[in-house]
């Protein structure tokens, strides 16, 4: 899998097509795994999409006492496996991005798996496929690099230099198989 997901929050129009589409994906059990939220509706209509960063060393898996969160060979961090998850929600609290969701009825955690049945065939995940504003994109690694370079330059122009090694405060807005 050479393609990766790339998020640009400013482009988001808050339509939640990605969430509707997430429910359509295989094995998603009609439950969306991504988020679209207002930054602060009182102040602005700015919304943002958010989903799993598929970390290379995922905090969620590290805080799981049952060792239930597995990573595929492509680097996709899967939902807690049904048989192991004991329902403690450590992953929800450990994840620096607030991603894992929890189903109290079925007593298990579920999260974005990049539409594993699609992305393993290099077909864009449902959210990236339908996103009308291209806030979520499924693009080549090189294209992501150039978009990021451009973005970093613009941020520098605007005096928004991220501090070095400040990974959790200024996370690069891409995820997928690749991460810093």
């Amino acid at each position: 899998m050479n393609k990766i997901m790339y998020l640009e929050f400013e482009r988001c129009i808050g339509c939640r097509a990605c969430q509707a589409a997430c429910r359509e994906c295989g094995d998603h059990d009609a439950k969306e795994r991504n988020f679209v939220e207002h930054v602060d509706f009182m102040e602005s209509r700015q919304t943002f999409p958010m989903m799993c960063m598929q970390c290379k060393d995922p905090a969620c898996a590290r805080v799981c006492p049952a060792n239930a969160i597995q990573i595929t060979e492509e680097g996709v961090v899967l939902s807690a496996s049904d048989e192991k998850c004991i329902g403690c929600r450590n992953c929800t609290f450990g994840c620096p991005f607030g991603i894992p969701k929890f189903d109290f009825e079925e007593n298990k955690m579920y999260k974005c798996d990049m539409c594993y049945d699609r992305s393993k065939h290099d077909i864009a995940p449902m959210c990236a496929s339908v996103c009308p504003s291209d806030a979520i994109r499924f693009i080549d690694f090189d294209e992501m690099q150039s978009l990021r370079r451009r973005r970093t330059q613009m941020n520098l122009v605007e005096g928004k230099k991220p501090t070095e090694q400040d990974k959790w405060k200024y996370v690069p807005e891409f995820f997928g198989v690749y991460s810093d």
């Binding site: 939640r16 097509a17 509707a20 359509e24 496929s129 996103c131």
Partner: peptide, 8 residues
């Protein structure tokens, strides 16, 4: 291929 939530 883009769709809004109604389309999906």
């Amino acid at each position: 291929g883009k769709l809004c939530p109604k389309g999906v």
